[in-house]
């Protein structure tokens, strides 16, 4: 057993874990964050995506011990004060989910995507979601939701010139 201390969705936890415990299993079984789910065993589907120190990772491909001393944000930590995160709201308004199993990972990755590229093109959104599989939606409304969330969030380029798309590949 190893002792780890992790901040999850703003709350600190200290727990004993087996070194082999995956971060996703730690979150689900020890912290009770069952909003983050497991969809595969090869790091392909992205359903387990969380933010580790602000960057998206697949929590099935991180050991809990690797996250010792770090901060994790899950789908359950996004809404604050009863207000949905703009990306959650965009997924709802654009019917970007059906069964909802991929949705936590999809939303977490979409937030990361806009963090890196606040004003993406449709293709950039699609490419930025290449590590997240959805079997229900055909992706069209997910892409639409991410673009809507981008449009709803003021960016530097919008503020500076209002020229719409700027070189977003940076």
């Amino acid at each position: 057993m190893a002792r780890i201390s992790i901040e999850v969705d703003g709350v600190g936890y200290s727990d004993d874990v087996e070194p082999r415990t995956l971060l996703v299993h730690y979150l689900r079984e020890q912290v009770g964050k069952t909003g983050t789910v497991v969809g595969c065993d090869t790091s392909n589907c992205g359903a387990c995506t969380v933010h580790l120190d602000g960057a998206s990772v697949k929590s099935c491909t991180v050991l809990a011990v690797q996250a010792d001393g770090h901060e994790v944000t899950t789908i359950e930590g996004l809404a604050t004060g009863g207000e949905l995160h703009p990306m959650q709201q965009a997924f709802h308004e654009n019917h970007a989910l059906q069964c909802g199993y991929c949705t936590p990972g999809m939303i977490m990755q979409s937030i990361d995507l806009l963090h890196d590229n606040p004003d993406p093109t449709e293709q950039e959104v699609r490419d930025g979601l290449e590590g997240n599989l959805c079997r229900c939606t055909g992706y069209q409304n997910i892409v639409k939701a991410v673009l809507a969330a981008a449009a709803a969030t003021p960016t530097h380029s919008d503020a500076a010139a209002g020229t719409g798309r700027s070189g977003g590949t940076a």
């Binding site: 069952t34 909003g35 789910v37 789908i75 959650q88 709802h92 019917h95 989910l97 909802g100 949705t103």
Partner: peptide, 19 residues
């Protein structure tokens, strides 16, 4: 109509069997 079932799905409050 926007879906009424979305709320729990987008906030991670879903009840999957494995939960």
């Amino acid at each position: 109509r926007l879906r009424k079932e979305d709320q729990r799905l987008i906030t991670g409050r879903t009840r999957w069997t494995d939960n």
